[in-house]
Amino acid sequence: MSTNKKVAAIKASMSKKLASMDSLTDGDVESLHDMLRQLEQMDITLDILSQTLIGTVVSKFKNHSIVGTTAKALVKRWKKVAKGEGTATATAATTAPSSTVDSKCSKNGGSDNDSKPSPAAAAKLERRSSVNSATDEMQSEWASLQPYRGTTCQKLLDVFKASKASLVKDGINGDAVDHLVVERATEVESAIHAKYPNQKQDYISKARSLCFNIKKNIPLASQIILGQVDATDLVNMSSEQLASDEKRKEIEERTKKLMESKQLDWESQNESKINEMCGIKGELLQASLFTCGRCKSTKTTSTQKQTRSADEPMTVFVLCLNCGKRWKFS
């Protein structure tokens, strides 16, 4: 699909929402935001603006509380294109007359051979150009997807880009990373769609979970970019598997403590820890709730027994460990 047709399709979709401008739902706003982002990523020329008149529709959303900022930025950029300050200016700069270049060379005393790159540099530029064109082609295909799928691709791309610095630090070429992050975002999105082909809510829920967990786990993001983790396997991972090592260790410790707390003898097994946390040490370890009436010592032990009928309270028997006195009360 050509850029002209894509812009025309987006214009038609946005025009339908103009009728209910004051009663847009959250889904409508999200859809509008996705369409504006698609327009931001397109190379809109003066011919496209003239043929589609997309600016007339986008400008009507400039006062919207949520998408207004994006709409204003787009209209401002398109005005520069119409005035020849945007794409047209860039094109003119790259296609400067050869006579101008020749005159500059003659002024600097150089020749055409001096300005030509070496074969190795030319090959490097050619490879970079090929990689960039392939990357741009993949990203342009996102515009033909359903809006929520295109949004997922962009969010995954943003998440993967966050780990670029770590990969470059490890010696990975930055240009290669730029291409790989686009490729991996496309692969992961396709894997999510393959698992939930007709289940939009499940698709969105899984996409959000992946973006959140990958963003928190830079090592995992690096492994995905380098192809060490397959996209299909990634989609089938649980939240625990997606968590970082630190988070996984924290979850395991919390689970262990929960299981220990359910044990009947947990209090006796952890008595020393409890006393330490409460500041009970020294003679206080031998103290109890009962004080001996003879020697005033708190080193006592007590037991309870049901000596009367079941509806009566239990009888407490106390023994003083200091002087040996025994007494009871109920």
Rank of each mutant, 00 (worst) to 15 (best):
T69N: 05
T69A: 12
T69H: 02
T69C: 01
T70A: 10
T70H: 05
T70P: 01
A71T: 03
K72F: 04
K72A: 09
K72P: 06
K72M: 02
A73Q: 04
A73T: 05
A73R: 11
V75A: 07
V75H: 06
V75P: 03
V75D: 06
K76L: 08
K76N: 11
R77K: 09
R77Y: 00
R77F: 00
R77I: 00
W78P: 07
W78R: 04
W78T: 04
K80R: 07
K80W: 01
K80S: 02
V81T: 11
A82W: 03
A82N: 08
A82D: 13
A82M: 13
A82C: 12
K83T: 06
K83H: 12
K83E: 11
K83G: 11
K83M: 14
G84H: 07
E85K: 09
E85W: 02
E85L: 12
G86D: 02
G86K: 02
G86I: 02
G86Q: 05
T87R: 14
T87E: 06
A88E: 13
A88I: 06
A88W: 07
A88F: 05
T89Y: 15
T89G: 11
A90I: 12
A90G: 11
A90S: 08
A90W: 05
T91Q: 15
T91L: 15
A92V: 00
A92T: 00
A93D: 09
A93I: 14
T94E: 15
T94W: 13
T94P: 07
T95N: 15
T95S: 14
T95D: 12
T95M: 14
A96Q: 10
A96M: 10
P97C: 06
P97E: 08
P97D: 09
P97K: 08
S99H: 03
T100N: 04
T100Q: 04
T100W: 06
V101S: 08
D102S: 02
S103C: 05
K104H: 09
K104N: 03
K104A: 15
C105S: 01
C105E: 01
C105Q: 08
S106V: 05
S106A: 01
S106Q: 03
K107R: 01
K107V: 00
N108F: 07
N108V: 05
N108I: 09
G109I: 03
G109R: 00
G109E: 00
G109W: 01
G110D: 06
G110M: 08
G110E: 09
G110A: 12
G110N: 08
S111A: 04
D112G: 08
D112V: 08
D112N: 06
D112A: 14
D112I: 08
D112R: 10
N113F: 11
N113W: 03
N113P: 02
N113S: 13
N113I: 09
D114L: 09
S115F: 13
S115Q: 13
K116C: 09
P117I: 08
P117E: 10
P117G: 14
P117C: 12
S118I: 06
S118K: 11
P119M: 11
A120M: 09
A120T: 09
A120P: 01
A120R: 10
A120H: 08
A121E: 14
A121N: 13
A122K: 15
A122Q: 15
A122R: 15
